[in-house]
Design a protein around this nucleic acid. Structure first.
Lengths: 210, 210
DNA sequence: GAATGAAGACCGACTGGTTGGTCTGTCTAC
DNA sequence: GTAGACAGACCAACCAGTCGGTCTTCATTC
């Protein structure tokens, strides 16, 4: 029980993940964290603030990773691969944060919500921009509407929180491999696929199988 | 105010969509529906049952559509197109049902939850099976793991509820067009893309543009 | 190096308001 | 006259948050 604040966050995370934000009362959090009402409200101004802190932790991480990938790499093909890879990996690190986030984010008080929405939008537009950039250079199929295609990517990755299990059949790396492959297959023009391996950051695990 | 039961369902749907299941009390539902506690509990045994009814309405529809598509069409390419198309279209019909469903389904009492999970799993496996079938006939890329690929499809489509607006830039038909195109691009072997138009149920709207 | 005191960490009984659900009863239709 | 449809006062449970108080830590003073 080193740091009570951290302890409360982790305990609530488990509880929220299992029963949802509204399925857990402050009293239950307090009991599970082996502290008291006083202890809780000493560290958080409200139950809502706790929710906000959970959200912010993970979304700040995602955004930073994506921005880094955007700077490190130059070609859109590499960028989109790196973004998907790091994005998918976040689910390994912050699975319960993300579950809570998507299940409860619409209950956030306005003052918190504005902050969150900004970061989410930044990330979304980063993805859109990479797609548009790839279309401009001719590396990606020009006929695809960038917004719909972008939302397809965000959707398939975000949905991971619903089904991914750390002890499941596939590792997060394998999922990242497949997702990157799927996305490149629909982004790249058909003629380009012959050369696709030259662009690849690494060869997906399933290319040797079957 | 013909049928009070229907009235209550539709009113709550609007309220839940805006404030979430937990953000709306039975008293508020009752007031908005211009009835009383007695009226409400005459038609529903609990607030949870109302949630269940909302869930069941839409998921039963999705499943029926997909099963029909699975029977009507014979080739996996056609099947997957039809399933995606009908799946995407559900968001036009049942947007608020679906929002409530994904935001609150984990609060469902066990007795309701079991029923729901069964139908969801049926749908999921239907998608998996179509992919495996296509791989068996050689129409789809054999190297892709069917489960991950299937979850990618389910994810991108399910995510629609987060961003689709009836009065948005793109119609639901256009979204279905793009999604079907994306999916076929990653499912079909590269060599097959030259012939892809022969398989297509219809030409996507964006193929003529740009 | 003992005494002082102030600030932060934490405790838990308590409160005011709300919630889902009940129950008695009335009003209508057949 | 009986059964379903609805009304609305009522209730126990519970909830997030408060507040007066204690215990610990540690810099400051003599």
């Amino acid at each position: 029980m080193r740091d009570l604040r951290e302890n409360i966050i982790e305990t609530s995370l488990e509880l929220f993940d299992r029963h949802g934000f509204h399925g857990v009362s402050v009293n239950e959090i307090v009991k599970a964290s082996q502290t008291s009402k006083g202890g809780f409200y000493h560290h958080f101004t409200s139950k809502d603030e706790l929710l906000y802190v959970i959200h912010d932790t993970f979304i700040t991480y995602v955004l930073k990773e994506a921005q880094a990938a955007n700077i490190v790499h130059t070609s859109p093909v590499e960028k989109i691969q790196a973004i998907i890879r790091s994005f998918v990996h976040v689910f390994d690190l912050y699975k319960s944060h993300i579950s809570v986030f998507y299940q409860e984010s619409n209950y956030l008080k306005p003052e918190y919500e504005i902050n969150m929405k900004g970061k989410r939008d930044q990330f979304k537009h980063l993805v859109f921009d990479v797609i548009r950039e790839g279309q401009a250079t001719g590396e990606f199929r020009k006929e695809l509407p960038a917004e719909i295609t972008g939302m397809a990517i965000l959707g398939m990755v975000n949905w991971i929180y619903k089904w991914y299990r750390k002890d499941g059949t596939y590792t997060i790396d394998e999922i990242a491999d497949v997702f990157t492959d799927l996305v490149l297959h629909f982004l790249l023009p058909v003629e380009e696929h012959v050369h696709v391996k030259n662009h690849m950051l690494h060869i997906p695990f399933f290319y040797e199988m079957k």
